[in-house]
Design a binder for these strands. Sequence first.
DNA 1: GTTGTACCGTTGTCCGACAACCCGACTACG
DNA 2: CGTAGTCGGGTTGTCGGACAACGGTACAAC
Lengths: 243, 243
Amino acid sequence: MAHTFQPVKRVPLYLKVYKAIEADILSHRLPENTTLPTETELSEQLGVTRSSVREGIRLLEQAGLVGRGAGKRLVVKRPQAGDVAAAASKSLVHGGVTFQEVWQALSTLYPSAAALAAETFAPNQVEDLGASVANLDALAPTDHDAIVRAAFGFFQTLAVGLNNRVLLTMLQSLNILIEASLARVIAKTPAAKQRIYEAQTQILSAIKAQDRGLAEQWMARHIDDLKRGYDVAGIDLSEPVDH
Amino acid sequence: MAHTFQPVKRVPLYLKVYKAIEADILSHRLPENTTLPTETELSEQLGVTRSSVREGIRLLEQAGLVGRGAGKRLVVKRPQAGDVAAAASKSLVHGGVTFQEVWQALSTLYPSAAALAAETFAPNQVEDLGASVANLDALAPTDHDAIVRAAFGFFQTLAVGLNNRVLLTMLQSLNILIEASLARVIAKTPAAKQRIYEAQTQILSAIKAQDRGLAEQWMARHIDDLKRGYDVAGIDLSEPVDH
DNA sequence: GTTGTACCGTTGTCCGACAACCCGACTACG
DNA sequence: CGTAGTCGGGTTGTCGGACAACGGTACAAC
């Protein structure tokens, strides 16, 4: 086989600036909450103009590695699960994923997550979940916005309770992806509150009883039930999730 | 309750530039592969200096919404699943997630994914999976790098075959998160190739037989087995995944 | 047909300047 | 004493202009 050459890579300065600072952050040479030097100082230390430094900073900013602190100085940040989830969801939406794909992911991930919760939840976490369900129960069946918030509150409490940032990020991404559309569906489904309440109650008691299989089953049914609302509302599942 | 005021928001121009272009991209007014105007033209159209435009462009760049095309002009891009997964993994690593969390996520997600594969895979997809396993089988038990690549090839083929970009993104994130460390583990485990081969063969035949439960079980065992390698290698699972 | 050359448009980088703004210190006033 | 003005220094945000580096194209030369 003939030898082929790699294209030589020329790296713009602003990218080098980004890489340089990123490396120091990822290696913890710049710990969380450190305030970075001023742009002028950075430009002196790195030997490039302030313009290039600023362009590099924009990249760091968008990557969630730094943020503006109290004054205006840059501060090293660690990305929160919520931020990562939001960014990922945005990209996925823009990538054109369909409702079908999101629902399949929900059906795949959430039942297993419920099973895990049944196994690992401490009594006070079960209590939190119970509070979430009670919160839903107290609402008027016509207050659709509040019902949606409460329904997601249950999922959110469950996700947070798993105490696992990887799973949390994934579950939150899914939540974000369906939240908007599910709100529309619930607004059109008269018995929504009742059905959600019953399903979540069943899931709750399965988790309380530490019954993996049951929690998984009921969560699967719950997701399925929510999904059915889309058919009823006439939403085509093969369409991209909109923004 | 006393009335409280929202902090007044001052939006820098470069952010407005970002939002403006992002909005046009997300709404498909700028479809994929569109070449954007030159920086000078953008600065004229938007009424700001080129510097501000450039800072906005860096944000778009990092968000994966645009990329440099053939020449050097900016081209509208849609984020690929791989990009999103890479970005998410990076953030999670920087967030300090532990091996424990990653493995729990793997054990939660992959068995369900295998079950889904058993249900949905077409014969030619099963064939692809089989090729992946055969590929592994052909390797020398000492060629650790190749074994790692082949093992991940199986996971990758399975993830792609699901034909679901949401799940693909999540599964790929997990792959990236353990890839480096798993390579180290496999290098230290003599019987690694054999054990991986057997597990993946079992999973394959379960999928071929369209047996959800069996595929799920074997995948769970496979993941468990891989995880055990960490204990043997003396890696503390409560430590953060390193970079 | 390949190589050399010249030109042009675009990006990358630099410089210098200034307005807007945050913050701390200090003063004046009630 | 405490609150509201005022001032000055430090920093970011924005501007404009300048030029080198590079990609692409067109054309001539070998």
